[in-house]
């Protein structure tokens, strides 16, 4: 467990419920500093929710989320905004500002938080856009981009300020194989070069396992398993096997919790 010795985020006994449904039930998660951590699990288990909890956009019902000695849920609004300057987040939907060009979107965090000259901002933005292969799209508006392009711009924006912690919510969805390969490399390279911590939520098992230093598998409001890719592959648990191999049937349910199918059909 050497990776967990130096953790940037320490989540203890976290509980969170949406209505009556528990999304997290007293889970412990630690994110190693300077590494790439993957969070995986079936759709709808609360991976996005976890990222939002870390970002302080949702308040947990119970438990602590400690980021570098700051307990996120206990921070005041002002302190929270301060802490968020250290974070970058790529939203599942991209979430570009539709009233700004691609260039301005990427420049936005830099303008807000630094006093760099216009010339330097330009250089940084073009560099980030170049990294995601969209330097040529700098003057386009978000409405003119394809879904995959928008996500890459959002990625460029998330890393614009070189934050300590970057959270990627499904960065590979909607990318063609070439772009996917580039992004996988980009994330790995950025992580090595800048030494920041990355959290990736993804369903692309092979790509993710290839670059992730540490992996959390969550399902049913619990942490199912965690460890390096090797450790997980060697995990004997049936559930872990099912998820990594993508089998439809097994202990991890494919279906969202529901009444018995036959019963429901008969009722109608």
């Amino acid at each position: 467990m050497s990776y967990l010795d130096d953790s940037i985020i320490d989540i203890r006994q976290l509980s969170f419920a949406r209505g009556d449904r528990a999304i997290f039930d007293a889970v412990d998660i630690r994110i190693p500093r300077g590494k790439i951590t993957a969070v995986m699990g079936p759709s709808g288990t609360g991976k996005t929710t976890l990222l939002r909890l870390i970002g302080g956009q949702l308040k947990p019902d119970q438990g602590q989320i400690v980021l570098d000695n700051d307990n996120i849920p206990a921070l005041s609004r002002k302190e929270l905004f301060k802490v968020r300057e250290k974070m970058g987040m790529l939203f599942q939907s991209g979430a570009l500002f539709t009233d700004m060009s691609v260039f301005e979107n990427v420049a936005f965090p830099i303008r807000v938080h630094t006093d760099l000259s216009e010339q330097m901002i330009r250089d940084v933005v073009l560099m980030k856009l170049h990294a995601v292969g969209l330097r040529g799209a700098a003057d386009m508006m978000p409405s003119e981009l394809s879904g995959g392009m928008a996500r890459r711009v959002a990625l460029a924006r998330a890393i614009a300020l070189d934050p300590d912690l970057v959270m990627y919510d499904e960065p590979f969805t909607g990318q063609d194989p070439i772009a996917m390969g580039v992004l996988v490399n980009l994330i790995a390279r950025l992580n090595k070069a800048l030494g920041h911590t990355s959290i990736i939520v993804s369903h692309d098992i092979n790509e993710t396992l290839a670059i992730a230093d540490y992996i959390y598998l969550i399902a049913d409001a619990k942490v199912l398993a965690h460890g390096t890719a090797e450790e997980l592959r060697g995990n004997g648990s049936e559930q872990v096997r099912q998820f990594l191999d993508g089998l439809p049937d097994g202990p991890v349910p494919f279906h969202f919790p529901a009444d018995d199918y036959l019963d429901q059909l008969m009722q109608g």
Partner: peptide, 9 residues
Amino acid sequence: QLSSLEMIG
């Protein structure tokens, strides 16, 4: 976009 703003600080 609002969440995104919040996360940018």
